[in-house]
Design a protein around this nucleic acid. Structure first.
Lengths: 107, 107
DNA sequence: ATTATGTGCAATCAAATAACTGCATATATT
DNA sequence: AATATATGCAGTTATTTGATTGCACATAAT
């Protein structure tokens, strides 16, 4: 039931993206997180579990409470995927390319 | 049947990410794209349709053939989502922050 | 005109997802 | 000890998804 689930699958759900945005502001417990949504606590808890499985969230137990922290580094995997496309759209790279062409034509 | 489908949903599927990587190298027809995968032509065609719906691919008709081009700019939407997280992991921003602190403490 | 090729669309099916309710467990609080 | 709180886990259901097969249509080649 929880197989083909990578980080891209994890951020595909809008609720999960919202949870990430929320936890990025500061570590929170599942109950506190759920308080920000209309869905049931169990539903939100399930989303948290998925995010934790993908290591986008880290647990920190404290008594009966569990604080979830953001693990921003994990987003590198998405950044790496986007990087080649960034080079296709970003002006800085286009300018760099034209500079390189100039250089080549000179020699 | 094709409603809540945004760009995050589009890149969640590994086959679709592979298609994007392929077309990024150069515009291709659906048949040519399908030639690179084991799935049926119709299955790949469906993935292409989804990518086109999300404007990650653009069509260019030429006789009975249809060339699909990459639309790299669309990836900005994903980049925008990641940006805040990048600021949390990227050393450049941490260094910038320490520089700012230094500056503040001086004045 | 007939045949071959490149695409898209409809119907079907198995598997995955997202949501819910209810129950179990562990730690605080009284 | 009894109760309240915080959380996780199991089971159920409706919806979505990814893949297949078969058919239709348009354009190119013979």
């Amino acid at each position: 039931m929880e197989l083909r689930r990578d980080i891209f699958q994890a951020i595909a759900d809008p609720t999960r993206r919202a949870i990430l945005g929320l936890v990025a502001l500061g570590a929170m417990t599942p109950g506190a997180i759920a308080g920000n949504f209309n869905s049931s606590r169990q539903t939100i808890s399930k989303h948290i579990q998925i995010l934790a499985e993908c290591q986008l969230l880290k647990q920190e137990e404290s008594g009966r409470e569990i604080y979830y922290h953001i693990n921003a580094k994990k987003m590198k995997e998405v950044a790496n995927f986007i990087e080649p496309f960034r080079k296709m759209w970003d002006d800085r790279f286009n300018k760099l390319e034209s500079v390189m062409k100039k250089y080549k034509s000179k020699k």
